[in-house]
Amino acid sequence: MKEIVIKTEKLTKQFGNFIAANEISFEVYKGEIFGFLGANGAGKTTAMRMLCGLSRPTSGNATIAGFDVYRQTEEIKKNIGYMSQKFSLYEDLNILENIRFFGGIYGLSRQEIREKSEKLIDQLGLEMEVKKLVGELPLGWKQKLAFSVAILHEPSIVFLDEPTGGVDPVTRRQFWDLIYEASDRGITIFVTTHYMDEAEYCNRVSMMVDGKIEALDTPGNLKMKYAANSMDGVFYELARGAKRKAD
């Protein structure tokens, strides 16, 4: 039996008359790479904010790493990592300072921070750059570093919101190498992306349309079901039926 780390049941968020997330139910397993796709305005961000304990659902249930999204939001935050294209690291701190800062926030000891910094810097080959301000690093390096920092405290789940947007094709692939490694260590990856080739790298993919989860399966099964030869085709087939055009 696979261990379940995210479980939602009819999870709903309503803003006035607008139902941003409409009774979404799904499960994500330990160590899984789970792709969370959908058109702009489909409700991905709303759903993700609820799963991170940042937004209180209107109705339904969800547990994240065994913690309840209504009552245990602080425990959720301690057990997850998060990064996006927009929010990653502090640009006016150097690499070491960023690691120390986030390590401190997540309650790691000085000893742990020191050991983890060395390992991380060695792994990313950043020995020469440790004293450089993060703002001066190329975007690709920044994003790789941000990912490593987001999993510094060995969370059970890491949420990645378009982590590779605008990143060059070589670095984009190196980024996915890091994702695979983390998943091999048992960290669950919950990722959104606009690159359809990256949807293929996920173990399973969900497609959100107008606030609902319209499809959830392995990329292979989805392609078969929608008679598409790529995930791009699957996305197009599902998203073009969307009525909602918000952002």
């Binding site: 058109a39 702009n40 378009e162 947007g165 605008g166 606009h194 996305f235 197009y236 073009r240 969307a242």
Partner: peptide
Amino acid sequence: TTGVDAVSRK
């Protein structure tokens, strides 16, 4: 088209 979904990009 940065940050725009695949359908709107087309």
